[in-house]
Design a protein around this nucleic acid. Structure first.
Lengths: 336, 336
DNA sequence: CTGAAAGCGCTTACAG
DNA sequence: CTGAAAGCGCTTACAG
């Protein structure tokens, strides 16, 4: 293993000079010496030891990305989370930092890992509302949350205008002539995000003198796509349109409907959320609320690194816009 | 920050004794001292410094997971890769190790990262046939490849019986009365895996006196799902069944067909590969070749850690079995 | 069963 | 522009 010392000896300088050159502090080294050291480093295939740097400089260049784990579920099987993780990793690597993944069930562990590796920052995917306070209290590095709704002040969060997403869906259904609507999402699990989408949806309907009845709010903690279609089939006043909390679930609904002979959008219209590639390829391409996942990753990392550079920067949250993407999964119902 | 030294002082022992207790080498420490140290460590919220341990012991507890990156594509948007990554991460964490992700375009970089962090092992996702030799030459830690076909001896690879997968698909189509078949997959990109699936498919057909014509091998580097359906629609002797290289693409085909009024399996039958959840929820649930992604992750990690424990262990490769899962996307064509 | 010494490869904080 | 000294928090390899 080639070390700074080896290079220093062959260059006839001290370790410090080599260290300075390797770290790009070359304003303080003569260009001649610097060039010599650089070529020597290349020739000798010098690779700096990250552990040693981390120990001495207290700067690890490690960013932890933390996802909620469960014993039954693989968190990276969710396309939204894994896509976001992919973009975040790209952003982090581009800055010369490294990503360590942590799948956690319990948050007492996370402090251990963060501190043990002296992580310089962390990004949390998924919803961790309850634990935010606790996590922030124990970790004094920049912490970026995504999709969190929390009362904690001094929070860095990259979120979406979920409420507006709900409004857009309601508006679109309304314009297309739909009057009885439903919402489907997992209510307990994903916390704030889902309830905001539902709230925006129902408020926007209320403004148009429409109400979404409690029976038309399908809780995915209690039923799946097939159950929903069955329920609709038995419903004396069935909804003509459903707003699904995600494209992935919209697709499940779509397929469950097809299986049971309910045509989309003929008998039932659907609006999804996310605008994942899968929606575009459905037989009737999915009308959806688009969010910019890549943009979310970029913002998360921009803010994260701004805080790493300047720890005293006041915390800043970003709410990204969402957009209605009308495609073919919502039927046009002429009003008499 | 609490260090070994702090605990040692309060316990009235040397750092070495504390170190031994923290690392579980307690056979060499009196139970009384050990208990005292353990409770002190807990009280003081001691968290070992991984960088220091890594530097001193030359054991980092870091496993690198390496995926091929591209400037246009997000490798974690692929459900197979991200699912596998998730399971691998669970396995690694369970053993008290840490996962660092590396998305790489060029393999000269990977040696840098591996060495810099003193990674104890690496798992490669995706296909890296050409570069395997080079990677192995530069890195002398356990390296586990997945889905690789390579001539390199001394290779640790966790693969699948892709050829058999092709045979199973062919056999199933044949039994169901199909006589003109097609294959769809990206030929240049994914290297060996795809061509083995295709070869198994075509060989098994040949054994039944059927040939798959070159025009019926659709290369996804040159066309997409819609193009394939168009081609079939214009085909004087169209295939009645397509074997798609992945469930994800099978779903795209499925939807493209529906959009163009080609009913599945009425006019066109499809067999996928992987058995991802998405296939099960299609209107006609997808017949597919199942692979055990979780099992692949478990095997990869089992072998990886076996080699970390014993570096002289001879390299061992595993070929996991695949299985036909008949569902509803293949039509029964009665033979006259 | 326990400890003193040396060292892992780097950086910080000086001094010149 | 350059370097000698001290130290980051741990483990290895002894010695007793």
């Amino acid at each position: 293993m080639v070390t700074l010392k080896d290079i220093a000896e062959r260059a006839g300088v001290s370790m410090m000079t080599v260290s300075r050159v390797m770290n790009g502090n070359q304003d303080k080294v003569s260009e001649k010496t610097a060039a010599k050291i650089r070529s020597l480093a290349e020739e000798m295939e010098y690779i700096p030891n990250s552990s040693a740097r981390s120990l001495a400089a207290k700067s690890s260049k490690i960013i932890a990305v933390i996802l909620r784990d469960s014993s039954v579920y693989n968190p990276l099987a969710d396309p939204y989370s894994s896509t976001l993780l992919g973009y975040i990793t790209k952003e982090v690597q581009q800055r010369g930092y490294y990503v360590m993944i942590h799948l956690v069930q319990d948050f007492s562990n996370i402090t251990f890992s963060l501190r043990s590796w002296n992580a310089e920052g962390a990004v949390f995917l998924g919803v961790f509302d309850d634990e935010i306070r606790h996590i922030q209290h124990n970790n004094h590095i920049p912490l970026v949350f995504t999709d969190s709704y929390s009362n904690v002040r001094q929070l860095i969060n990259i979120g979406l205008d979920d409420y507006k997403g709900g409004e857009l869906a309601a508006g679109h259904f309304y314009e297309k002539g739909h009057r009885i609507l439903a919402f489907a999402g997992p209510f307990t699990k994903t916390g704030g995000v889902i309830s905001r989408r539902c709230q925006g949806f129902s408020d926007a309907l209320a403004r148009r003198a429409l109400t979404i009845t409690p029976e038309h709010i399908y809780d995915l903690e209690k039923m799946d796509a097939e159950d929903i279609i069955d329920t609709i089939l038995d419903d004396p006043e069935p909804p003509t349109g459903i707003f699904a909390f995600s494209d992935e679930f919209a697709m499940e609904l779509y397929n469950a409907a097809s299986r049971k002979g309910v045509s989309i959008p003929g008998s039932l219209s659907i609006i999804g959320f996310d605008d994942l590639p899968v929606g575009r390829s459905l037989p009737s391409p999915l009308t959806t609320i688009r969010q910019d996942i890549k943009g979310k990753a970029k913002e998360a990392c921009r803010i994260l690194f701004a805080h790493i550079d300047d720890p005293d920067k006041p915390s800043e949250s970003v709410i990204l816009d969402v957009k209605l993407i009308p495609r073919d999964s919502v039927k046009d119902i002429p009003q008499i």
